[in-house]
Nucleic acid binder design. Structure first.
Length: 500
RNA sequence: GGUCCCGUAGCGCAGAGGCAGGCGCGCCGCCCUCUCAAGGCGGUCACGUCGGUUCGAAUCCGACCGGGACCA
């Protein structure tokens, strides 16, 4: 088999079908292709396989571009970018396929096959073979008269590729040498009876025409590799392909249980992660770990580090399980690594989305956010977590009320003396700073009332922030301001007194 | 049914003929502590089974078992 030599520029491709929302497994495939291209300084080609009119949609197509752009996986050739092998949507390449088919027919690489599945099965049965063996290569040797006779019966033939009668061996970039025995792969259909070319034909033809050197794809396509290699051999003989690419098959991404992560599983929906506030670099980092690792003692890294280190031969052949907890942990690490300014920028859209901040953020709101950001940042796993933590700072006083669960837990009758003492201690505080607030509250509650800190500050926290879990209390109060803080403590005190 | 891939802790990855008790996530405990995080310390948990080759096997070979995929 003639494979691309060292002087051929490396070209990889990502060629999804636009059916539905991008799947994290699909994105992992894109990532490994992209990383390989960037690592070796090759081209990353983006091609859309939109030949299934029944399942493809324009929304899905747009979603694919949106996904790659959000993640920062730039393509050197493809939709909206162009390139020397246009067009990059299969739906616009039909004449090309017709032309290739004509060459294959003329060269006798493919043949007309008239058998129905029922007839194939019947022949297997009659010969005492397993009826489920698949196509039996029966139509390989028909004469022109026989074919004419079939046509006279009203039959229309499909076009099949004649598989070679030798073993097919190739070196998988991920798995090493793999051999398919001669005769174990039946002659595949390349073109339907109605003239429609199938994936079997179209995918390798485009790869050949686009001079793809490395086909890195999911393990599910491994069994189709022998017939593609056979097709490449035929395409080379008719002058369509220059070489047969290298193949590498990446492991499955598994979901719960022992099943491949399904498209219908919400865990597989890429955009759900974006909506929750995963960082592109965090998600990508996690996805990279699905079958690859940068080192045995490290798993948080940037995409620059990944492209520097990525080596397809070090990808594991084992199925990878998608672990949401781990994904979140990796994302949280990236979130913490952000500068405070960057964090504010990124979190803003999520705060607007949650209704915590208005579309037009005032300078004052921005300043408050910037001040609380460092304390919130290290408490977030995803950006949307921030909404619940900073909401209390931007709430209208009329509308503000502690969360019912939090209130039920900490604002009972025994909170009354705590809240009363807090108001007393804070009312005339000379300066409203974190340090002063802390000292006043400690003196009043811990020393004065003899309470454990946990008991002392719980009711204050809920009165001020509305939640049992919040950013650090004194800083929060300083930012809230004296009037609003005292107002909230006062109202909490009223409700406690009224309830008692 | 045929073909192909994969079995190292709950999960993800290292280890590829030489003492497996590695790293990260998770979980548990402790420290820190105004809550929750973060951080620090400690703990928990693994080579699918059976043969073979070898002085020595997670690693090479074979069979089996299990999981998965593709084709029909």
């Amino acid at each position: 088999m003639s494979t691309p030599d060292a002087t051929t520029k490396v070209r990889v491709r990502f060629c999804p079908s636009p059916t539905g929302t991008p799947h994290v497994g699909l994105i992992r495939t894109a990532l490994f292709n992209w990383a390989h291209a960037r690592h070796v300084g090759g081209d990353f080609v983006f091609r859309i396989e939109d030949t299934d009119a029944a399942r493809d949609s324009e929304e899905s197509y747009a979603a694919l571009l949106d996904a790659l752009r959000w993640l920062g996986m730039d393509w050197d050739e493809g939709p909206e970018v162009g390139g020397p092998y246009e067009p990059y949507r299969q739906s616009q390449r039909r004449e090309i396929y017709a032309d290739v088919v004509a060459k294959l027919v003329e060269a006798g690489e493919v043949y007309e096959s008239f058998s129905t599945p029922e007839e194939v099965e019947a022949r297997h049965r009659a010969a005492g073979r397993d009826p489920k063996l698949g196509y039996d290569n029966f139509d390989r040797t028909h004469t022109d008269e026989q074919k004419a006779a079939f046509r006279a019966e009203g039959r229309e033939p499909v076009l099949r590729l004649r598989m070679p009668d030798h073993d097919i061996t190739f070196t998988d970039l991920v798995r090493g040498e793999i051999t398919f025995r001669a005769g174990s792969v039946p002659d595949p259909v390349l073109v339907r009876a109605n003239g429609e070319p199938l994936y079997t034909l179209v995918n390798p033809v485009d790869d050949a025409l686009m001079r793809i050197t490395h086909v890195l794809r999911g393990e599910d396509l491994l069994p189709s590799t022998p017939r593609q290699i056979a097709l490449y051999e035929a395409l080379r003989r008719v002058g369509v392909a220059e070489f047969t690419p290298h193949f590498g098959h990446m492991p499955y991404v598994m979901g719960e249980g022992n099943k491949k992560l399904s498209k219908r599983d919400p865990q597989s929906n890429l955009f759900l992660y974006r909506e929750r506030g995963f960082l592109p670099e965090g998600l990508l980092n996690y996805l990279a770990l699905l079958g690859w690792s940068i080192a045995d003692d490290r798993d948080v890294f940037t995409m620059a580090e990944m492209t520097e280190a990525f080596d397809i031969s070090r990808v594991s052949a084992n199925p990878a399980r998608f672990d949401l907890k781990k994904a979140e942990a990796i994302n949280a690490a990236h979130l913490r690594a952000l500068s405070a300014e960057e964090f504010v920028e990124r979190v803003l859209p999520h705060l607007r989305e949650a209704g915590v901040l208005p579309a037009e953020v005032s300078a004052e709101q921005r300043a408050v956010l910037a001040a609380i950001a460092p304390m919130v940042q290290e408490r977030c796993v995803v950006l949307s977590d921030a909404a619940g933590m900073v909401g209390f700072l931007f709430a209208d006083e009329d509308a503000f009320a502690p969360e019912p669960d939090a209130a039920a837990k900490t604002l009972g009758a025994d909170a009354e003396p705590v809240l009363r003492a807090s108001v007393e201690a804070l009312r005339d505080l000379p300066e409203w700073t974190t340090a002063a607030i802390e000292e006043a509250l400690r003196t009043a509650l811990v020393d004065g009332l003899g309470l454990k800190p946990r008991k002392a500050f719980g009711p204050v926290r809920v009165a001020i922030t509305g939640r049992t879990v919040s950013p650090p209390l004194y800083e929060s109060m300083e930012l809230l301001g004296r009037d609003r803080s005292l107002g909230r403590l006062g109202r909490a005190l009223e409700s406690v007194t009224a309830g008692a």
